[in-house]
Amino acid sequence: MTRHADPTQVQLTADGRLKHFLTTEGLTKSLLTEILDLADSFISTQERAVKKVPLLRGKTVVNLFFENSTRTRSTFELAAKRLSADILNLDIARSATSKGETLMDTLWNLEAMYSDMFVVRHADSGAAHFIAEQVTPGVAIINAGDGRHAHPTQAMLDMLTIRRHKGTIEGQTVAIVGDILHSRVARSQIHALKTLGAKEVRVIGPATLVPKEMAALGAKVFYDLEQGLADADVVIMLRLQKERMSDALLPSESEYFKLYGLTEAKLALAKPDAIVMHPGPINRGVEIDSAVADGQQSVILNQVSYGIAVRMAVMAMAMSGQASEQAAEKSQGETL
């Protein structure tokens, strides 16, 4: 028995346009490609002296961060500003909800300020999804990371990075290394990579950090870094949180680095032209050796600048999807 429609379709309008951006799962190849193409076009505007485009002029975007984040929040802020939107930053991690206000109460208060878009980061998986189901029609929700579930803008900037450096995503062998279990980035990357035609997606780490169920998402599980890196085109290193040691998931940082840290010698097992990525912030000497992080094959800093363009693209697309849905509903109302 079930009473649900496909949950990934909450983010789409009736005619298949993006109106929220909650997850890369369930989106078509053409829609993901549209995001990348639009982001590409914004990269060229970013290199101009005047960086603003007027796509979100008069719109109010609220950065709703229930988890602390400086980098992701700043790139969303810059993206909104470059789209000419007004932006309000709310650091909920240090305000209302810690005073006992529920997520719903916070939302209703913010909606009363007539915002057009919420960029949401929350520690609970499904939080952005939940908010998208609760908000007034016409308000777009962009997921800036929910629990372990999804971080779709990070995944799309990684796709853009791969496409710009490797020409295409199709046919690439991509190895994702590290704490897959807790990683919303990895989950969003796997969905996007599979849809965009990657040849093979590998997840590499110890069994405590790599659930065997990852195979159900279409990833190939490796417990050995050397085997997993063999002939890879793209190597994505994930950040290792310090808590993993106290949670009895790992013995020590040093043992982890010895087994799963990326060194030049290990990177040599991948294809010679393989690129190295990391969603940041990096732990030098824990998951990645400094020589690799700063080396020829590293594209880590490029990822950051592409992040703004990708966020501009999904914000513009979701706002336009909302507008078209509102217009469609209005005209339907008139014909009735």
């Binding site: 998986s125 159900a216 998402l217």
Partner: peptide, 11 residues
């Protein structure tokens, strides 16, 4: 604990 929990990122 199963494929759905893993996909949704729920413990």
């Amino acid at each position: 604990e199963g494929p759905t929990a893993n996909r949704l990122g729920l413990t």
